[in-house]
Design a protein around this nucleic acid. Structure first.
Length: 510
RNA sequence: CGGGGCGUGGCGCAGCCCGGUAGCGCGCACGGUUUGGGUCCGUGAGGUCCCCGGUUCGAAUCCGGGCGCCCCGACCA
């Protein structure tokens, strides 16, 4: 298509009588260069273009890393704020542990080493000398925190210990994509210690609920809660729980995980407490994490062919005001109105931005902010000034039908209503999309067909690890989770035909 | 680690086959014009042509070596 447009332009060079054709050709070409690749054409290309063109991220000089630009970082800050508030409300406190972990720590929990050693970055030299013991750049902090916990916890009176840290971690991945998988990423990792298995289990599930509540209500991403299979379990955990979300290309994205670590780390790091009866007992610990991957989830859940669509709760700008004017006289009258409305919204706590760029046409700005996903656009021009009106346009409903003409007097209320509407409609859209692409299957052929078509399959499962791997080799899909709410009756195992013990959700995943 | 491709102003590319000292689009700066759905015109700034070596009067272009990146297959929040 671009090739065609280019050749048309070339042919028209110097040709007489084809002026309008040339202009049309040029305009088409310019449009195609400005437009984003369609999702249906190439989803991962769409994703990359959006991430870079909406200024979420920039390429980094280091292999698998990215620079998170201010617009992208503000989305992350919104995520942090939403989670941190929920963590605090449930009694957790923030702390910070070192980036560097003695290599010997990582080795103390057998499964943990095995799980992480392939992707560790290790510092062997520092201060111009070789270190006596290499330092691992943390891939996660169970080990250092476990060591600290063993010091801090003496008696049952010290429990539960509820700690969270906001940090960067490094996992040396081979294939990386901005936000979804990078060598370094930002996240929070919660670490708690409890007196009993049941308390630890309750904490693990509580934190999963918090992730789900955040995903649904703040990020407008419907998620399915469930337990991970043994193969997908965190290295060193008793049980791993997950929230799974469906992206716009129907691939699954694990968007947050919560682990009941049992007494594995307590035993490896000697985290013990004295009971009321003066007995030494090992603690039961948990850990749970959610990362900058969530930014990618927001992009891939809500984005469309025009670009980002941000849920108002997380949008850096909830409203962008585009002033429209010709003459200087118009300009000052328009800007007068704009400034008053900006203040009105700002005072109400709405994140509002005025696009004062000169030399960019309003039409350009409309498209630009649509690409960046701003939920609501307010246009104010001479006609509006005359009538004390304004135009509101919603990002989730493009074109004429998403526009409304309001009075400036009712602007605040109209904007608040609209923001709430958009938040809800993004969630509804995503939920409808997801539900339309999950199918219950009762035979393996059916499962294979559904996966091949790109959808998710829900099936009864009673297979072994080896069976699960065989299904993965055969179809490319993995068990994303055993959902808490299976939504259907158990039959025979879809793969082995034996008695099934749980319902499993199969999908291709990121 | 196996297979494929690419390194040329900030970005995307042409030029290379057939050597003659670099060009286009976008972006950027300035001036004007325009502005209710991706304005247009003019002027201008900006390049170790990935690196090292060789051939040659002369290398982005030919030859040798190296480095880096991207895409596709085995692991992962």
């Amino acid at each position: 298509m671009p090739l065609f447009a280019r050749s048309v332009e070339r042919c028209n060079c110097g040709a007489a009588g084809q002026a309008s054709g040339t202009i049309r050709g040029k305009r088409k070409e310019a449009m195609s260069e400005q437009a984003v690749t369609a999702q249906s054409e190439d989803f991962s290309r769409w994703y990359n273009e959006i991430v870079y063109r909406a200024d979420l991220a920039a390429p980094s000089p280091v292999r698998g890393c990215v620079i998170i630009r201010p617009y992208g970082y503000e989305i992350w800050e919104g995520i942090k704020a939403g989670l941190d508030r929920r963590f605090k409300a449930t009694g957790h406190q923030n702390a910070y542990f070192p980036l560097f972990i003695p290599e010997s720590y990582i080795r103390r929990e057998a499964q943990h080493v095995e799980g992480f050693s392939p992707e560790l970055a290790v510092v062997t030299h520092a201060g111009g000398k070789e270190l006596e013991e290499p330092l691992v750049v943390r891939p996660t902090s169970e080990t250092v925190i476990g060591e600290a916990f063993s010091d801090w916890i003496q008696s049952y009176r010290d429990l539960p210990l509820l700690i969270n840290q906001w940090a960067n971690v490094v996992r040396w991945e081979l294939r990386t994509r901005p936000f979804l998988r990078t060598a370094e990423f930002l996240w929070q990792e919660g670490h708690t210690a409890h007196a009993t298995h049941d308390e630890a289990e309750a904490e693990t599930l509580q934190m999963l609920d918090i992730y789900a509540d955040f995903a649904v209500n703040d990020a407008a991403i419907p998620v399915i809660k469930g337990e991970k299979s043994r193969l997908e379990r965190f290295a060193g955990a008793l049980r791993t729980y997950t929230i799974e979300a469906m992206m716009r290309d129907r691939r699954a994205l694990q968007s947050g995980t919560s682990h009941n670590l049992g007494q594995n780390f307590a035993k490896a790091f000697d985290i013990r407490y004295l009971t009321e009866n003066n007995n030494q007992e090992f603690c039961w610990t948990t850990s749970w994490g959610l990362s900058t991957r969530m930014v990618g989830a927001v992009v891939m859940t809500h984005g469309d062919d025009k670009g980002l669509r941000l849920p108002p709760t997380l949008a850096p700008y909830q409203v962008v005001i585009v002033p429209i004017y010709k003459s200087d006289a118009q300009r000052s009258a328009v800007m007068d109105n704009v400034e008053r409305l900006r203040q009105l919204l700002d005072c109400a706590g709405i994140r509002v931005h005025v696009d004062t760029r000169d030399g960019q046409s309003p039409g350009f700005k409309f498209n630009d902010w649509e690409m960046r996903g701003v939920p609501v656009r307010m246009e104010i021009g001479p006609r509006d000034v005359e009538n004390s009106n304004a135009v509101l346009a919603r990002r989730d409903m493009l074109g004429r039908q998403g526009k409304q003409f309001i009075s400036q007097a009712g602007a605040l209320e109209a904007v608040q209503t609209l923001l709430a509407d958009i938040q809800q409609s993004l969630l509804d859209d995503a939920a409808a999309f997801r539900d339309a692409h999950i199918t219950d299957v009762s035979s393996y052929d059916e499962l294979r067909g559904v996966i091949e078509a790109g959808d998710w399959a829900r099936a009864s499962w009673g297979g072994t690890d080896a069976d699960e791997l065989a299904v993965k080799d055969d179809t490319g899909a993995t068990i994303r989770c055993f959902p808490f709410e299976p939504d259907s009756e158990l039959g025979e195992c879809v793969y082995t035909g034996r008695k099934a013990d749980q319902a499993a959700l199969f999908a291709k995943a990121y």
